[in-house]
Amino acid sequence: MASTHIVVGLDGSDAARRVIEFVKKEAGSMTDCQVTACFVIEWSPFTFQSAEVNEARHKRREEEIDVARDKVLDPAIEELREAGLSVEGHVAHGDAADILDRLAVEKGATQIIIGRLGQRNLAERIFGGVSGRLVAQSSVPVTIVP
């Protein structure tokens, strides 16, 4: 059992790039650190969609998970492992803030590291983006990499 556990939220953006660099530096300086890298595919069970979309949803979900793994998660895991870290990866559908927090609780993590996204749409300005909501509800300390 690793003495420290960090949950890292990743997406395909430049912010994620900076997060990986930060984690390498931060976690590299700790002894016995376990990293859980998580990619969240934004999804809500309360949307309206057509019967055709529903019919192919299972297949689509598998594809989304595969893409997330291939394009983002696996390269990131490899990079962190090369830096000598012990890493496991997760892909999940849902609300990123919710999932990162739950994952942190479940893993007994001591902190969550995520990137700050520059772009904001109207909804995010009003309700707050993932980082804002995570900070507001998180059970463990959160580091936001600018």
């Binding site: 069970p45 309360f46 969609q49 529903n54 949803r57 299972h58 979900r61 559908h93």
Partner: peptide
């Protein structure tokens, strides 16, 4: 709903359709 099924068609979505 099983959280492991997140991303699949939910009860709400089937009802709404």
């Amino acid at each position: 709903s099983d959280p492991n099924d997140a991303g699949e068609v939910s009860h709400f979505q089937a009802l709404a359709t």
